[in-house]
């Protein structure tokens, strides 16, 4: 087990270096000069040159990459933003809890929807409920997250506060907020709200948007897995032993059917933590996705690299966790 983890960690380092090198190379393939952007409006060539020297972009790529690695390993620093000279560590650490709140809350919600619906559909294939569920799933999978987000914003945010809908007028009221984020604990500067209630209140629509998208995938996957497991010989054995249906389902079907779901869930959460770009954008959540998009728009290399580094660490860590968890729930897998 220990050997396995060490091997995985070494492999993770290789992966990490590869990802950051690729990010650097792609960045320098784009014919833009970050120094010119950072130097303000109508800079003189001399000004651009001095800014480039200050940012370090006048050095060769390999030198810059080496410097990045040195800072990361020795100073644990991701560097400073080209655009506003803020520490990238601060940027990422401010954005990470926002994304984490969105993704983990969303994941809980989508599993709460997907497990009962998927299992019910599998137990009653071709029933009316199953058909309705499968049709909704198709909509969920086909719909774009931005579209889902905008429709939800419109229906639950805009219409109540506008005071009229479908030609009727009514006293306007605020139902659900459609923009912004509130810290779970103490407000940081510039924020108007904080505390668990405000946090939850502001995340309802983003969570629902996120959940609709993923719940659809998971309903389908859980349905397929449960149906497959129901046909397993050991399920028949359990029935032959005289186990009641509920016990057959709980003890023999679900645990086996959930094995692949656990893997998917780990991967999906990890990828989403790296930046739930679209949902964050629609609802104005200052998470990692927003951070990365803004940084790409301003050619802010250290911030781009910062988010990439963070995302890869999350993905690698989650993969490792999923593998270990998997070995724990499936005794056939022995890590050696």
């Amino acid at each position: 087990m220990t050997r396995y983890i060490i091997r995985r960690l070494l492999w993770a380092i290789v992966l990490f270096v590869a990802i950051t090198i690729i990010t650097y190379v792609i960045f320098y393939l784009v014919p833009t000069d970050p120094a010119r952007l950072a130097a303000g409006r109508n800079p003189t060539p001399a000004q651009v040159k001095s800014v480039a020297h200050y940012l370090g972009t006048d050095r060769p790529v390999w030198y810059q990459y080496g410097l990045f690695l040195k800072r990361l390993v020795i100073d644990h620093s991701l560097g400073y933003s080209f655009a506003d000279r803020v520490s990238v560590n601060t940027d990422v650490l401010n954005a990470a809890p926002v994304t984490a709140s969105l993704v983990i809350g969303g994941a809980i919600l989508w599993m709460l929807i997907a497990i009962p619906v998927g299992v019910f559909s599998a137990l009653h294939p071709r029933s009316k409920t199953d058909r309705v569920a499968m049709a909704s799933v198709l909509v969920g999978i086909s719909a774009h997250p931005i579209w889902i987000g905008l429709i939800l914003s419109y229906v639950f945010g805009y219409i109540p506060s506008s005071g009229h809908a479908l030609g009727f007028s009514f006293p306007s009221f605020t139902f659900l907020p459609i923009q912004g984020y509130c810290n779970l604990r103490g407000a940081s500067q510039g924020q108007v709200c904080s505390g668990p209630i405000q946090w939850l209140y502001h995340l309802i629509l983003p969570w629902v948007t996120f959940a609709i998208l993923y719940a659809a995938f998971y309903v389908r996957m859980i349905r397929a897995n449960v149906m497959e497991t129901l046909n397993e010989d050991y399920v028949r054995t359990a029935r032959a032993k005289g186990a009641p249906e509920l016990q057959v389902l709980r003890s023999h079907v679900l645990r086996n059917a959930m094995l692949p779901v656990v893997t998917m869930l780990g991967m999906d959460i990890a990828i989403a933590l790296g930046g739930a770009v679209l949902v964050e954008n629609v609802f104005g959540l200052p998470g990692l996705g927003q951070l990365a998009v803004t940084a790409v728009g301003t050619f802010d290399l250290p911030v781009i690299i910062g988010t990439v580094v963070f995302a890869s660490i999350v993905v690698i860590t989650f993969n490792l966790l999923v593998d270990i968890l998997y070995a724990w729930i499936d005794p056939r897998i022995r890590l050696g």
Partner: peptide, 12 residues
């Protein structure tokens, strides 16, 4: 049953 390889639950 016929196939003892698949007739026992692998996770218990």
């Amino acid at each position: 049953f016929q196939d003892p390889m698949t007739s026992l639950n692998p996770v218990h």
